[in-house]
Amino acid sequence: MATARKSRGESRILRYLILGTWALVCLLPILWFLSIGFRPRTEVITPEPIYWPTFSLDAWRLLLSDWPIAKYLLNSVLAVGGSVVISLILGIPAAYALSRYEFRWREDIGFYILSTRMMAPAIVAVPIFFLFRSMGLLDTIWALMLIYAAVNLSLVIWIIRSYMLDIPKELEDAARTDGASDLRILWEIIIPACLPGIITAAVIAAIFAINEFLFTLLIASTANAYTMSVALANFTGGSDGIIYNAIALVSFIAFVPILILVILIQKHLSRGLTMGAVKG
């Protein structure tokens, strides 16, 4: 008994040791660029090790004075938020139809939707550029909303569909005999019952959208539509050379919202990412 408890205690210490080490490995880069962001530019690129770094807000000043970071952030938020709303509005009814109605080619349509995710974005980059140009939407947030929604739609549909498949059919049958229309059933029974799935899908879509780079680069050409991810990349190529401390700071600012999102939905996220693997 005593030895069993002891060895269990030891294995616990070992476990925490391993997990702690791994957490440190993961967190170190973040702490590192955070520390870079609060040091003067010259100190960042010196080859000698520095044990007592100087604290400096140079990078902050540079950011806030020369760089429309607020605008970029706003663009990101609008484009991402809008795209999530669009993909939910389109995705929820689609997921419902794919999970409930029996019709020809149902599985094929489901697979086709998923397959849009399988090709490299670069393949469609050129046609999409011309498409948006002819619509006159180049360099607008509207274009970004649409393209993010398009990219994420398949994922959103599949995540929500997997949750809807878990809802017993009897529930809808009951609602139907109680006198509810299809739309009411969707709104009052199905959506509340798979709300965790919808939240998961929304957050995953938001994270993908925040990180989207290729299409944003293609569509955005000025601060009109630059989002954080593209602005960040442009930041490196200024005439002043590479401003490491400011880049670190911007990266950190871009990273924080995602971190918060992930922490908020951690519980649902693991379920969403393993969907289909285990039912229930």
């Binding site: 017993p168 049958d173 005999t177 029974i189 709300l195």
Partner: peptide
């Protein structure tokens, strides 16, 4: 005639209570 227009009330074997209500 659709189920919702038949004016039938059913107790389901699996209860089928609406979980969010």
């Amino acid at each position: 005639i659709d189920a919702r227009d038949r004016d039938v009330a059913m107790v389901f074997q699996g209860y089928a209570l609406y979980p969010n209500m």
